[in-house]
């Protein structure tokens, strides 16, 4: 380790990058790029979906019973504030060195962002709109599904975009316990200084984040044409 790490990393130029990718893309063994990409997708998508599925009822309950909101949001914010490493340590005793150990804290982080988004989204329903729904004879459930939730969608989706990108990026921290998805490429490069894995890791993570964000923007356009209509007017 006499030579500085960075200059040794740079010494390996682009020619060997493609070669490295070709050699490691799909070796059929654990730890190939394709394999890590799959792990990364699972460990980031599960928290996004689970976070949304759990934040919706929590948010609905918090909007319905306001006194519930601050304590609930507080719990998730505290979990959000905990450093990942001790959280992993704590979880390892229960779930071991598995993907679940990464997925659980990321799900909590997702809820910490999405819970306020759901509550604010429901709060964005104008009072006169809610009242006219009542006056027209919507039952409470139907009003929620057909009026309040659709109007909350833009705010919830904005939260979901933050969650998707941060979740995809945060998975790499799991490398600390050997479950980092593409993040494993960074620890590997650190142990055995070599540039290509780092480049591949960064590019793929950023690309995943961009694709996820793009899909959510598309979903927003399809689900809420009325928001675009408002901007155009």
């Amino acid at each position: 380790m006499g030579e500085p790490l960075l200059s040794r990393l740079i010494a390996d130029g682009p020619p060997s990058l493609w070669e490295w990718i070709a050699r490691n893309w799909d070796t059929g063994r654990v730890g190939s790029i394709k394999d890590l990409l799959g792990d990364h997708l699972v460990m980031s998508l599960v928290p996004i979906v689970a976070g949304l599925v759990l934040a919706l009822p929590l948010g609905l309950a918090s909007a319905r019973w306001r006194w519930l909101y601050q304590p609930t949001a507080g719990v998730f914010n505290v979990v959000y504030a905990l450093p990942s490493l001790p959280v992993f340590m704590l979880l390892i005793s229960v779930t071991g060195l598995s993907k679940t150990t990464v997925i659980i804290p990321l799900t909590f982080y997702a809820i910490a962002v999405l819970l306020p988004a759901v509550v604010d989204g429901l709060g964005s329903v104008p009072d006169h709109v809610r009242q006219s729904a009542v006056a027209m004879g919507f039952t409470p459930l139907r009003r929620l599904v057909q009026v309040e939730l659709p109007i909350a969608v833009p705010v919830v989706l904005a939260g979901l975009r933050v969650v998707a990108v941060s979740s995809i990026s945060l998975v790499s921290v799991g490398a600390l316990i050997g479950q980092g998805g593409l993040g494993m490429l960074f620890t590997r490069a650190y142990q055995n200084p070599f540039l290509p894995p780092v480049i591949v890791g960064i590019v793929l993570i950023v690309a995943l984040a961009l694709v996820a964000d793009g899909l959510l923007v598309l979903a927003q356009r399809l689900l809420t044409p009325w928001v675009r209509a408002r901007r155009a007017s």
Binding site: S132, A135, P150
Partner: peptide, 22 residues
């Protein structure tokens, strides 16, 4: 029953109360 009652009574509110998403 309130929902049934209300469906049979038209209601117009100050700011129209239209559904912005429809």
């Amino acid at each position: 029953d309130p929902p049934k009652l209300r469906r049979g009574i038209g209601y117009v509110i100050q700011q129209a109360g239209l559904f912005p998403h429809k």
